[in-house]
């Protein structure tokens, strides 16, 4: 017999700290597999966010930098422009990318920085303990909107792919999910595309991944899968929003 799924060498072989049923571990593995398959581990620099994935600097087996909350795209810009031969990715959650870091996100896309952004959307703040995120659904409770998100008070969720698709500089935008094994496989393809685009110098790529946070949603891991499929997907439809092939075009 033979081991079919070897652990990717781009991931450090240690236990990750994430909660049971959290999607970060899945996406970490996918990014590492892509790095392995493209043979780019030794020239990749990753940017770790603030949030649960702050410890990803320990997990990815490539050069890593950890920066201030939300500033990932700016840090990635600095690295990429000074070391154009490097492959640079920024790994960010919804608070990091769509709240405090919205300006950096929008402007790195507007400049069409040749970087890849992996964006985990789980509709909640994980590390700080379940506060409302910019992507929290209407009616979804969080510790800073205990009765559920009320648009009159808290406004509406931000759809990052749709928003960025208005920018000419955003060359590749795709939304996927890791709530099913099939979704995981698709997510890996999208991540691979985002890295390939960078290798080919095609400009700004972002993959938005709908992911589970059972701990802060207050559900079991299995219910977490259901939450993604039934609650998140209707608001955040999966698909390709922009790709270099359909220049300027939109889904």
């Amino acid at each position: 017999m033979e081991l079919v799924n070897k652990k990717p060498s781009s991931l450090v072989d240690i236990k990750m700290h994430y909660c049971p049923g959290c999607g970060h571990g899945i996406v970490h593995r996918l990014i590492a597999e892509v790095m392995d398959e493209l043979g780019i581990r030794e020239r990749t620099v990753g940017v770790a966010p603030v949030g649960c994935a702050v410890f990803s600097d320990d997990y990815f087996n490539c050069d890593m930098i950890q920066g201030p909350h939300g500033r990932g795209p700016a840090i990635a810009t600095g690295i990429k422009r000074s070391q154009p031969g490097c492959i640079v990715f920024s790994y960010q959650g919804d608070g990091d990318l769509a709240s405090i870091g919205m300006a950096e996100t929008v402007h790195s896309a507007a400049r069409s920085e040749n970087i890849s952004i992996i964006f985990i959307n789980n509709a909640i703040y994980g590390m700080t303990g379940g506060q409302m995120a910019p992507t929290t659904l209407i009616g979804q409770p969080a510790t800073t909107c205990p009765k559920g998100r009320d648009p009159k008070v808290n406004g509406y969720p931000i759809k990052v792919c749709e928003l960025l698709s208005q920018l000419d500089g955003a060359r590749f935008l795709e939304r996927t999910s890791v709530s099913t094994a099939q979704g995981v496989i698709k997510t890996k393809k999208a991540i691979k595309k985002a890295f390939q685009n960078q290798i080919e110098g095609k400009g700004f790529s972002l993959v938005e991944i709908l992911s589970m946070c059972p701990t802060n949603w207050g559900v079991t891991p299995l219910q977490g899968l259901k939450f993604v499929d039934e609650k998140m997907m209707p608001l955040y439809p999966l698909g390709v929003f922009r790709s270099p092939e359909q220049e300027g075009g939109q889904k």
Binding site: I100, T128, G129, K147
Partner: peptide, 24 residues
């Protein structure tokens, strides 16, 4: 975190305003 969390329900109750801003 307990400060904004507490304020998020307590202030509206007291007739005040709580806003979770997008950044500090």
């Amino acid at each position: 975190n307990e400060v904004p969390e507490y304020m998020s329900w307590r202030l509206p109750e007291a007739g005040g305003t709580f806003i979770q801003a997008e950044s500090e």
